[in-house]
Deep mutational scan, measured.
Amino acid sequence: MDPFVVLVLCLSCLLLLSIWRQSSGRGKLPPGPTPLPVIGNILQIDIKDVSKSLTNLSKIYGPVFTLYFGLERMVVLHGYEVVKEALIDLGEEFSGRGHFPLAERANRGFGIVFSNGKRWKEIRRFSLMTLRNFGMGKRSIEDRVQEEARCLVEELRKTKASPCDPTFILGCAPCNVICSIIFQKRFDYKDQQFLNLMEKLNENIRIVSTPWIQICNNFPTIIDYFPGTHNKLLKNLAFMESDILEKVKEHQESMDINNPRDFIDCFLIKMEKEKQNQQSEFTIENLVITAADLLGAGTETTSTTLRYALLLLLKHPEVTAKVQEEIERVIGRNRSPCMQDRGHMPYTDAVVHEVQRYIDLIPTSLPHAVTCDVKFRNYLIPKGTTILTSLTSVLHDNKEFPNPEMFDPRHFLDEGGNFKKSNYFMPFSAGKRICVGEGLARMELFLFLTFILQNFNLKSLIDPKDLDTTPVVNGFASVPPFYQLCFIPV
Results as ranks from 00 to 15, higher is better:
Ile169Ser: 06
Phe194Asp: 03
Met198Thr: 08
Lys160Glu: 14
Tyr68Ser: 12
Gly98Cys: 14
Arg307Asp: 04
Val6Thr: 15
Leu233Phe: 15
Ala430Glu: 10
Leu29Cys: 08
Leu391Pro: 01
Ile488Val: 14
Ser51Leu: 00
Arg21Ile: 11
Gln278Arg: 13
Leu366Ser: 03
Gln324Thr: 10
Gly298Ala: 14
His353Phe: 05
His344Pro: 06
Ile47Trp: 15
Glu318Ala: 13
Pro363Met: 02
Asp408Trp: 04
Gln146Ser: 14
Thr229Ser: 15
Met136Ser: 13
Asp414Gln: 07
Glu246Arg: 12
Ile327Val: 10
Asp265Glu: 04
Thr159Trp: 12
Thr66Phe: 03
Leu287Ser: 01
Cys164Gln: 11
Ile452Gln: 04
Ile88Leu: 12
Ala161Pro: 04
Leu67Gly: 01
Val355Gly: 00
Phe376Pro: 00
Glu438Trp: 06
Cys435Tyr: 01
Val288Lys: 07
Pro101Ile: 07
Leu57Thr: 05
Glu354Thr: 02
Glu318Ile: 08
Pro30Thr: 01
Gly343Tyr: 14
Asn41Thr: 07
Ala291Pro: 00
Thr55Val: 11
Asp191Asn: 12
Lys399Gln: 15
Ile42Ser: 12
Lys322Ile: 09
Gly384Leu: 01
Asp349Met: 10
His396Cys: 08
Phe282Tyr: 11
Lys118Val: 12
Pro367Cys: 06
His411Leu: 02
Gly109Val: 04
Ala149Glu: 02
Pro174Lys: 04
Thr55Met: 12
Glu155Gly: 07
Thr159Lys: 10
Arg157Ile: 08
Glu203Ile: 05
Ile452Leu: 11
Ile207Lys: 05
Arg150Cys: 11
Leu295Met: 11
Thr167Pro: 00
Ser242Glu: 15
Thr386Ile: 09
Trp20His: 08
Leu467Glu: 05
Thr386Tyr: 06
Arg108Gln: 09
Ser303Ala: 14
Phe114Pro: 03
Leu467Val: 11
Glu274Tyr: 08
Ser23Cys: 10
Met198Ser: 07
Gly431Lys: 01
Gln184Glu: 15
Phe263Gln: 00
Glu274Trp: 05
Val64Ala: 06
Ala291Leu: 14
Met339Gly: 11
Ser429Thr: 01
Lys28His: 14
Thr301Trp: 07
Phe168Asp: 13
Pro31Ile: 08
Leu440Val: 14
Ile207Cys: 07
Met426Gly: 01
Pro346Leu: 04
Gly25Ala: 15
Val472Ser: 14
Arg329Pro: 01
Gln184Cys: 12
Asp46Thr: 07
Thr386Gln: 09
Val370Trp: 00
Ser18Arg: 15
Ser280Gln: 07
Arg105Met: 07
Thr66Tyr: 02
Gly171His: 07
Pro363Phe: 02
Thr301Gly: 13
Phe267Ser: 02
Val370Phe: 02
Tyr308Glu: 03
Phe376Cys: 03
Ile123Thr: 11
Asn258Leu: 10
Met271Gln: 07
Tyr225His: 13
Gly437Ile: 03
His368Trp: 04
Ser115His: 03
Lys118Asp: 10
Ser23Gly: 13
Lys399Cys: 12
Leu15Gln: 05
Leu458Met: 09
Glu318Gly: 07
Asp262His: 02
Arg132Asp: 11
Ser58Val: 05
